[in-house]
């Protein structure tokens, strides 16, 4: 294939990736609006968002095709994959500690029961022992 044909293939692939990424970003927005609970909304904010961003960055890389900027896009994708779960974890933990999580909406809630067990055990003991970290 000639260079021109490779260019067209890359453009088409880039368009497909951009469309997929935008669709996933839209699904993330719908999810965060529709889901019933704080923890469920975090799912919407993590998974489709990360993959959507990766697809959009792949689309951009296919359009740019050369140059140092492509490496920075790899970096952005790696950052997102590393940091999105951490942000979701911290938000979830803060939600538990400030009482924003409604146990009645969950089928099973082992974290609350474990926390209550730990608190009961700590009240039984005289010393102040924090089981968390």
């Amino acid at each position: 294939m000639t260079t021109d044909q490779w260019t067209t293939v890359a453009d088409v692939a880039s368009a497909v990736c951009l469309l997929g990424g935008a669709f996933l970003a839209f699904a993330a927005g719908v999810g965060v609006l529709r889901f019933p609970d704080l923890l469920a909304r975090m799912h919407a904010g993590t998974k489709p968002q990360v993959l959507g961003l990766i697809l959009v960055l792949i689309g951009l890389a296919l359009r740019l095709r050369s140059g140092g900027a492509v490496w920075a896009l790899v970096l952005v994708a790696v950052f997102q994959m590393l940091t999105a779960p951490v942000a979701a974890h911290m938000v979830g933990r803060a939600g538990y500690r400030t009482g924003k999580v409604r146990s009645d909406l969950l089928v099973v809630d082992e974290l609350t029961s474990d926390q209550e067990l730990a608190r009961a055990r700590d009240h039984g003991r005289a010393e102040d022992d924090d089981p968390r970290d």
């Binding site: 889901f35 019933p36 469920a40 919407a44 909406l105 969950l106 089928v107 099973v108 082992e110 609350t112």
Partner: peptide, 18 residues
Amino acid sequence: VSVIALRPRYVPRGAVIG
């Protein structure tokens, strides 16, 4: 997650497991 988000009138039932 997108299917669950976009499926009309479906509310996901979550759980927290250890």
